[in-house]
C-alpha cells in the first residue's frame, strides 16, 4: 500500500473524536500552561480612550494558588506589588507604604484600566478542573490547525459558564478563546500569539484580551521572559515581602 493509501486508511480508522479525547486535550493544555512554579517578565499595553500605556512587571508563581507580582515601570507604577495567596489579594503601594486588601466587589474592578478584572487574575484553577470539554471539530487559525473545544463549567462559580477554545493540534496550546455568559452571549475574546517552545513546552508569549461590551482596542499582554521550575524563596509569598 502506498504511503498515501496508508495515511488515508489511518484517517479512516481514527476513532470519532470523543468527549474523553476532548478532556484529554484540555488536560494537555493545562500541563503546558501550568508548572510547579514559574518566573516571568511581561508587559501589558492598555488602550484607553485617550491614550495607550505600557506597564512592565515581574511575577513569580508557585502552583496556581500563590503568586507575587512587582511592577517595574512606568515610574508611577514602579514598586507596586500584588500578592495572591489562597484566594486572597493584597496590594502594596510604595508611595503610601500601605498594604491594602482587595476583597468583595473590588475584585470585580478592572486592573489598571485594562480589560481584565482582579478576579480574572484570581481564578487560578486549571481549565480541566472547571470545565468539561467537548470537541466540536477543527479549524484553521492562521497557519495552524486547531481543535475547537466547547467547554461547559462543572462548578457553580466559574465566572464564564461557557468557553470556546481553539487548541493547536500539534502543540496543545490555545490559539483563541471566547468567553460566554450563562445566556450564551459572548463577553470576551482572547487571541494567543507568538507561541514559543520554552524549556521543552509550547507557550503563547503574547495575547490580546478584549472585553466585547466595552469600547476600545483591548489589552495586549506580552511575555518577554519566562522560566519554569525556578527556585523561588518561600518568604516571597508572605505579606512581609510586599514591603521589601
Amino acid at each position: 500500500m502506498s504511503k498515501i493509501g496508508l495515511s488515508m486508511l489511518a484517517l479512516l480508522i481514527v476513532p470519532p473524536l470523543s468527549a474523553q479525547n476532548a478532556n484529554e486535550i484540555l488536560a494537555r493544555v493545562d500541563q503546558n500552561l501550568s508548572a510547579t512554579n514559574r518566573v516571568m517578565e511581561s508587559e501589558m499595553t492598555i488602550h484607553g480612550r485617550r491614550s495607550s500605556r505600557t506597564l512592565t512587571a515581574k511575577s513569580y508563581a508557585e502552583g496556581t494558588k500563590k503568586s507575587f507580582t512587582e511592577y517595574l515601570s512606568p515610574v508611577a507604577e514602579k514598586g507596586t506589588k500584588m500578592l495572591k495567596l489562597e484566594g486572597r489579594l493584597w496590594i502594596y503601594s510604595p508611595a503610601t507604604d500601605r498594604i491594602i486588601q482587595i476583597s468583595g466587589h473590588l475584585l470585580r474592578q478592572s486592573v489598571m484600566g485594562s480589560d481584565l478584572s482582579y478576579e480574572d487574575l484570581m481564578d487560578d484553577r486549571k481549565l480541566s478542573e472547571i470545565y468539561r470539554a467537548e470537541l466540536m471539530g477543527e479549524e484553521q487559525i492562521g497557519e495552524r490547525v486547531a481543535w475547537v473545544l466547547e467547554l461547559t463549567a462543572v462548578v457553580a462559580d466559574a465566572a464564564y459558564p461557557k468557553q470556546k477554545l481553539w487548541i493547536d493540534r500539534e502543540r496543545f496550546v490555545p490559539l483563541k478563546q471566547e468567553l460566554y455568559a450563562k445566556s450564551g452571549k459572548q463577553l470576551k475574546n482572547v487571541l494567543f500569539q507568538d507561541v514559543k517552545k520554552i524549556e521543552g513546552r509550547w507557550f503563547p508569549c503574547a495575547y490580546v484580551y478584549k472585553d466585547l461590551l466595552k469600547q476600545g482596542k483591548g489589552t495586549e499582554v506580552k511575555i518577554n521572559r519566562i522560566a519554569f521550575d525556578q527556585p523561588i524563596p518561600d518568604y516571597l509569598f508572605t505579606k512581609a515581602a510586599l514591603k521589601q
Binding site: S51, L55, A76, E77, S93, T96, R98, I100, S110, G113
Partner: peptide, 16 residues
C-alpha cells in the same frame, strides 16, 4: 486612612 482608586490613566491611585 488610605484612599485607593484609579488614576486618570487608569493606574492604581493611592493616597494617605
Amino acid at each position: 486612612f488610605t484612599f485607593f482608586g484609579s488614576t486618570m490613566e487608569g493606574s492604581m491611585a493611592f493616597g494617605n
